[in-house]
Amino acid sequence: MDSEVTLCSPDCRHEWLSDAFSGDGHPNWRGGDTGNYGQGWNAVRREALERDEYECVHCGIGSESLGRNPDVHHIIPVRAFVKSNRHEKTDAHTIDNVVSLCPSCHRRAEFGNIEAATLRAEANIVNSD
């Protein structure tokens, strides 16, 4: 999904986004939903936005240019914690596992087009793996 998509109209784009980024078309879809992120998510989300100065750590676009706050992305996906026998879903919500990304970079990261090591380096996160 590294290539750009060319579509004929805003309606066509909306339909494509709806199909491509929902259900089994979404990169996080692995046969089920992880549900509500649970306790700790809102606090770590705010902490990440503050640490990253409300800018995408990958491309540098800020909240003013975006017209909203950047997304906050889990480097190790929540689904990995859900599937683990040794972790709880809320274990995913640590400051060293999240980065602020604009929607475009967030999609690229979700599809594996931006590596975890790159995101950690851009956010100055020391790898705790």
Rank of each mutant, 00 (worst) to 15 (best):
A48I: 13
H87S: 15
P27Q: 10
A80V: 06
R45S: 11
Y54K: 10
D96F: 06
E122Q: 13
N42W: 03
Y54N: 15
K89D: 08
I95G: 03
R107T: 14
L119P: 03
E64A: 13
E88Q: 14
H26I: 00
G23A: 09
T6C: 03
R46T: 10
D24E: 14
E122S: 06
R120P: 00
V78S: 05
L66F: 10
R68H: 15
N127E: 15
D2K: 09
S84Q: 07
D96N: 12
E110T: 00
D91A: 03
C59A: 05
T94I: 12
E47K: 14
G62P: 04
G32C: 00
S84F: 03
F21N: 11
C102S: 07
D71E: 12
C56P: 05
L7D: 02
T34G: 01
A121K: 08
E15R: 15
R68S: 15
E88W: 08
H74T: 06
D129Y: 11
P70L: 11
L119T: 08
A109T: 08
K89C: 06
C8N: 12
R13W: 05
R30N: 14
N113F: 15
S22E: 13
I61W: 02
L101F: 00
D52I: 04
R86A: 13
I125P: 02
G112L: 06
R120Y: 04
L101K: 01
V44C: 09
I76C: 09
D96C: 07
R86F: 08
W29I: 01
D91L: 00
E50I: 14
N97V: 04
I95E: 12
H14A: 12
V44R: 13
N97T: 03
V98W: 01
W16M: 07
C59Q: 06
D24T: 06
D52C: 07
L49Q: 09
L119A: 07
G38A: 01
V78N: 05
R13L: 13
A48V: 15
D71P: 02
G40N: 09
V44G: 06
G31A: 02
T118C: 11
C8A: 15
C12R: 02
H58N: 15
C56K: 08
C8F: 01
R45Y: 10
L66C: 12
C56E: 12
G31E: 00
I95D: 07
